[in-house]
């Protein structure tokens, strides 16, 4: 479960929706870095990951390069 004390780039506490989005992004990021998934899983996980990257970046939850996309 995402931590409830997480804060955004401006130091504001994240809302429950924001924490859930960030958690989803981190999970997709972890999947995207694996090399044992079938192409249909890996490439779609990467595609989904960059979409979540946008949501998390727009909402100031992260500012980073995902690198393994």
């Amino acid at each position: 479960m995402p931590e409830s004390n997480q804060r955004d780039l401006l130091g504001h506490p994240m809302t429950a929706d924001e924490r859930e989005l960030l958690d989803l992004y981190r999970r997709l990021q972890a999947l995207s870095a694996r090399d044992d998934l079938p192409p249909c899983a890996l490439m779609n996980a990467r595609q989904a990951m960059v979409m979540l990257w946008n949501a998390c970046t727009d909402l100031d939850l992260i500012f980073e390069e995902p690198e393994r996309e």
Binding site: Q47, M51, E65
Partner: peptide
């Protein structure tokens, strides 16, 4: 552009 860059461009 990377996959992420390209997605950001649309965003």
């Amino acid at each position: 552009d990377s996959r992420k860059d390209w997605s950001w461009i649309g965003e």
